[in-house]
Design a protein around this nucleic acid. Sequence first.
DNA 1: TAATAACATGAATCGCAGG
DNA 2: ACCTGCGATTCATGTTATT
Lengths: 374, 374
Amino acid sequence: MTAIQTKPRKPAPALPLNTILSGDCIEMMATLPDASVDLVFADPPYNLQLKGALHRPDNSLVDAVTNDWDQFASFAAYDRFTCEWLAQARRVLKPDGAIWVIGSYHNIFRVGAALQDLGYWLLNDVVWRKSNPMPNFRGKRLTNAHETLIWASRAEGAKYTFNYEALKALNEGVQMRSDWTFPICTGGERLKGADGAKAHPTQKPEALLHRVLVATTKPGDVVLDPFFGTGTTGAVAKMLGRDWIGIEREPDYIAAAEARLARVRRVDEGALGITTPKRAEPRVPFGQLVERGMLRPGEELHSINGRHSARVRVDGTLIGRDVKGSIHQVGAALEGAPSCNGWTYWHFRREGQLVPIDLLRQRLRAEMDSSGPN
Amino acid sequence: MTAIQTKPRKPAPALPLNTILSGDCIEMMATLPDASVDLVFADPPYNLQLKGALHRPDNSLVDAVTNDWDQFASFAAYDRFTCEWLAQARRVLKPDGAIWVIGSYHNIFRVGAALQDLGYWLLNDVVWRKSNPMPNFRGKRLTNAHETLIWASRAEGAKYTFNYEALKALNEGVQMRSDWTFPICTGGERLKGADGAKAHPTQKPEALLHRVLVATTKPGDVVLDPFFGTGTTGAVAKMLGRDWIGIEREPDYIAAAEARLARVRRVDEGALGITTPKRAEPRVPFGQLVERGMLRPGEELHSINGRHSARVRVDGTLIGRDVKGSIHQVGAALEGAPSCNGWTYWHFRREGQLVPIDLLRQRLRAEMDSSGPN
DNA sequence: TAATAACATGAATCGCAGG
DNA sequence: ACCTGCGATTCATGTTATT
C-alpha cells in the first residue's frame, strides 16, 4: 500500500516493552493502549483460606501463603477483583489475542466463570500434574497434586495462535494432551533472598511457561503478565525471543525479577524455529501437474482404497463415473463424503505401484523452493 | 441421648432405597427428607455448545452429544438450574455428608462457583485423566484428555468420610493424589441398545465410581445420584454393598439401568483385593528435556561416532545439515539409515565428556516414578 | 484355528484464504 | 461482509473381516 492515509489516527502510546511496571495491576493495565498485546499470562492471588498455621508430622512449620495480598473478605470481593483485572486484560488484548490463567480449586472456578461471563471463549483447560507435590500431611484429603490452567481466546470465533505441529513435536509426534507433567519449582531455579528464604511463595517452573509460550505465541509477540512476581514469564519470554511487559506491586519481587532478567540470554536464532504446518507451504494447483507433463491427460487415477477411478482432463479436472470436477470434488462425490483431500486420495500407477499424486506436488514445491518465489 | 423428645417431629418418610425415581431431579429430590443421604454423586449436563457436525480425517462422522437435555439457553439459565439442584442436594445431605460433581471446562467452573456460593466446602478437585481420549481431529487445540471432579463437604468445618488408608493401599502404598488415570467406558462395559448403538452418550466407567465410593463412603451408606442415566453409580454402589437412590427423567435410560442393576451382584466380603500389573516404563518425549532446561535450545548434540552434529530447537526437534525433525529422524537421515534410536545416538558435551541424552531420560523417569501410578 | 488386517468409535464448544 | 471451494486433520482400544 502506497496510498496516503487521509484520516491519520491518534498515534498509540508506545508500549513499555520488556519493563516491569510498578503498581496495582488494574491501574497499570489502564495505562496501556487498547488491542496492543498478543498474550496475557496471569497467576493471580489464589484466595486461599487457611485458618491457622500448618505443621508437618514432625511439627515443623509449613511456610504457607499468608501474605496479606492473598486475603479477600469474601467470594464477592474476590469476584469483583477478578472481573476488573480480566476486563482490563481483555481491553488490552489484540482481537486475535489469548489469555492463560493458572489457579487451584480455591479460585479457579471463580476465574473460569468470570472469563465466560466477560465474553472470553474457553479453548482448553489444562492440568499441570506436579511430579513432586507437597504431600497431604494430615491424611484428611487427597494429595493436592495439580493446578489448573485455563486457555481462552478473546471472543467466540476469534482467531488465536496455536502451534499445533510444534507441540506435537514436543510430544514425540503424538498430539499434545490437556494434562502436562512438570516438577514444582525447586533447586537452583528457585529464587532465594539474601536470608536463603524463598523470594516468592508461588514461583512457577520455567518449563510450564516454556510450553505455554511455544504453544500460543510467535517470536516477536508481546506477552503481558499482570501478576509478574519474580518474573518467570518475562524470563522465559526473553529466552524465547518474545517481548514482555510485567506488572508487579511488591518492590521486593520487582528487584528479584530485574536481577533475574538481567541474567537471561535469548536462545540462538536457529533454535527458535519450530515445526510448521503444511498449510504454510505454497498452494500448488493440480492443473500444474498436467501442464508440466507429470501426469498425461487421459491418464487414469485410482482411489487410495482401489474402489474408484477417474481420468485426468486437460484443464486439471477429473472425470469419473457420472462426476466431473476438481480432484477433491470427484473424490468426495465417489465416496459420498462431505469432503475429500484429493492430494492424498488419488494415486497413479508407475511400474506396477500405486503412488499418491501428493508426491508430484512435493516434487513441484521442491523445484519452486530452489528457484525462488514467483 | 435418652431424653424424651417433647415435640415429636412428623415421622420422616421412608427413603426409597435402591430404586430409580422417575422424573425431574429437582422435583424428585424435593420429595426426599432432609439430612437423609450420605453421599451425592452427580454427572449433570455439561452444556456443550456444539456448532456443526465434526468429521474425522477419514470422513466418518463423530457421534456427538446433541441431546435436548444438554441444551440451555444461556449461562444464566444453566446457573439457575445448577443452583437449584445443588441446593436440593444440600438439603437432602446429612450434616456430615459430601458431594461429588463431574464436569468438563464447559460447565465445571459454573458448578464449582455455585458450590462455593451455596456454602459447600471444597475438599479437592480431582482430575480424571483419560488414557484413551478422543483426539482433536482438526489440530486446533490440545486433545481434551481429562474431566474434572469436585469433592465437597456440606459446610466448612463439617466432618466427612475419607478412607485414607484404603486409597493409599489402592495406590501401592503411596498417598493417593488428585489425578486419577482410567480409560473411558468402552467394550463390554458399555451398554448398547437393541440396535447396537450406545444406550447413553456419556456413560462413565465403573472404575471411576469404584474409587469415589471406596474413598468417601462406608458399607451401608446411602448414595444419591440425581442424574442416574444408565445407572453406573447404582451398579457400583450395589456391588460395594452401599445403598443407592437414582433419579432419572428419560424412560429409555431407566429401562437400561434397571436391566443392568438386576445383573449386578454384591461382591463377597474380602474379595475386593486386586493385583495391579507392573507398569511399562513411561514414555518420555525428548521435548521435555528442553522444556525442563536439561538441554538448552541451540545446544549442539553429537553423534555417537563423532561424525555428525545437530542443534536443539525450542520445540524439541533437531536441526542439522539440511535436515529438521525428531532426534530419531535426524539421526537416521544423517546416517542414511532407515531408522535410528536417537536416545542412544545423540550425545551432549559436559565437562569435555560426551554423554548420551538417554541419561537425561533416565533421570526424568526416576522423578516420575516417585509420584506413583494413580 | 490362528494371525493379521480392516474397521469402528469416544462429553468436541475442532478453517480459512481468496474473490 | 458474505460466499465458495480448497484441502488439512487422529489416538487408543475393541470388534469384525480376511487370509
